[in-house]
Amino acid sequence: MSRPADPKARNALIGAARAEFARRGVKGARIGDITAACGLSKGAFYLHFPSKEALFGSLVEAFLGELERVGQERMACLERFRAEHGHPGPEDVSARTERYRDFLRLQAEQDRHMLELMWSSREVLTALIVGSQGTSFESVMWDVVDREVDRISQEFRHLWGCAMDTPDVEPRLFGSFVVGTYLLLARQMGRLTQKPDLATWASSLQRLMYEGTAPREPLSAAAFVAGPVSVSARTPPPPSTRRRHARAANPHRPPRKRP
């Protein structure tokens, strides 16, 4: 009769494996090190998982499932907000209207959920970002990145107006900027030993994203043609100022006699 699987042993193996995957990557992780870290045998490992790749695959699948849930929750909240209040536009941002402040709080709260997921999955994210090369998991993170860039680009178009022919910031560039920021935060989380203030992170990031990309008055064409004023084109200082500058540069020079 086969020995029943112990859920406590499974959880211990998962915890040890997460740390090992983050430290050594999927290829470099060793089952012996995973089992030694939690005081179990290799037999106990194979009782729960057929291979280290299968264990990592289950971690990635769980993370992607949670990522999908958080994304769907965000979209549902945004749809409810738009139905009840309409979508804030540039004038709301510039005037910091109540609708914009409510929208910002909603987005910050949803971002906090995302950051909480990233924190709880930081070892898996670290392994996906820097430790999955040469494995079947190599493209997982970049598929997620592409989807998030598309989502944020669409959200950006909604905010600043879908009919803009020449927005100040190209939507996909903005999406890449935002996703790149979160990717770096995920990498940073993998190095932290204490949990940061994720609510403050979320609020700061949202204000930076929306207020930092608000449309501005375009510069006139003349400003680009004229360019910076050259030294020779500047108005020369009066003679008295020139004399003071000359004396300061050469204090041993005798003063000029006036006629």
Score class of each variant (00 low, 15 high):
residue 98 E to K: 14
residue 98 E to N: 13
residue 98 E to G: 14
residue 98 E to S: 09
residue 98 E to L: 13
residue 98 E to F: 12
residue 99 R to T: 05
residue 100 Y to H: 06
residue 100 Y to A: 01
residue 101 R to H: 11
residue 102 D to P: 05
residue 102 D to C: 11
residue 102 D to H: 12
residue 103 F to L: 04
residue 103 F to W: 09
residue 103 F to P: 02
residue 104 L to Q: 08
residue 104 L to E: 12
residue 104 L to H: 09
residue 104 L to T: 05
residue 104 L to S: 12
residue 104 L to Y: 06
residue 105 R to Y: 12
residue 105 R to I: 10
residue 105 R to T: 09
residue 106 L to R: 02
residue 106 L to V: 02
residue 106 L to Y: 09
residue 106 L to C: 04
residue 106 L to G: 04
residue 107 Q to S: 15
residue 107 Q to A: 14
residue 107 Q to W: 11
residue 108 A to F: 12
residue 108 A to D: 14
residue 108 A to R: 13
residue 108 A to I: 13
residue 109 E to V: 10
residue 109 E to T: 12
residue 109 E to Y: 14
residue 109 E to C: 12
residue 109 E to S: 15
residue 110 Q to E: 10
residue 110 Q to A: 08
residue 110 Q to I: 05
residue 110 Q to C: 12
residue 111 D to E: 15
residue 113 H to V: 11
residue 113 H to S: 12
residue 114 M to N: 11
residue 114 M to S: 09
residue 114 M to I: 11
residue 114 M to E: 11
residue 115 L to H: 07
residue 115 L to S: 08
residue 115 L to K: 07
residue 115 L to Q: 10
residue 115 L to E: 05
residue 115 L to F: 08
residue 116 E to Y: 06
residue 116 E to K: 13
residue 116 E to D: 15
residue 117 L to N: 07
residue 117 L to V: 14
residue 118 M to L: 14
residue 118 M to W: 15
residue 118 M to P: 12
residue 118 M to Y: 15
residue 119 W to D: 04
residue 119 W to T: 02
residue 119 W to E: 03
residue 119 W to L: 00
residue 119 W to S: 01
residue 120 S to H: 15
residue 121 S to N: 09
residue 121 S to K: 06
residue 121 S to P: 08
residue 122 R to T: 04
residue 122 R to S: 01
residue 123 E to V: 04
residue 123 E to P: 11
residue 123 E to I: 03
residue 123 E to K: 02
residue 123 E to F: 09
residue 123 E to W: 11
residue 124 V to Q: 01
residue 124 V to Y: 08
residue 125 L to P: 07
residue 125 L to G: 00
residue 127 A to P: 08
residue 127 A to I: 03
residue 127 A to H: 05
residue 127 A to G: 03
residue 128 L to P: 10
residue 128 L to A: 00
residue 128 L to R: 00
residue 129 I to A: 13
residue 130 V to P: 09
residue 130 V to Q: 07
residue 130 V to H: 13
residue 130 V to Y: 10
residue 130 V to I: 05
residue 131 G to K: 02
residue 131 G to Y: 07
residue 132 S to N: 04
residue 132 S to A: 02
residue 133 Q to H: 14
residue 133 Q to A: 15
residue 133 Q to S: 14
residue 134 G to L: 00
residue 134 G to P: 05
residue 135 T to R: 01
residue 135 T to I: 02
residue 135 T to D: 03
residue 136 S to W: 13
residue 136 S to K: 12
residue 137 F to T: 00
residue 137 F to A: 03
residue 138 E to Q: 03
residue 138 E to Y: 00
residue 139 S to A: 09
residue 140 V to G: 01
residue 141 M to G: 01
residue 141 M to R: 04
residue 142 W to S: 06
residue 142 W to I: 03
residue 142 W to P: 08
residue 142 W to F: 02
residue 143 D to I: 00
residue 143 D to R: 04
residue 143 D to E: 03
residue 143 D to Q: 02
residue 144 V to Q: 10
residue 144 V to A: 05
residue 144 V to I: 07
residue 145 V to R: 15
residue 146 D to Q: 06
residue 146 D to I: 00
residue 146 D to P: 05
residue 147 R to D: 01
residue 147 R to H: 10
residue 147 R to Y: 09
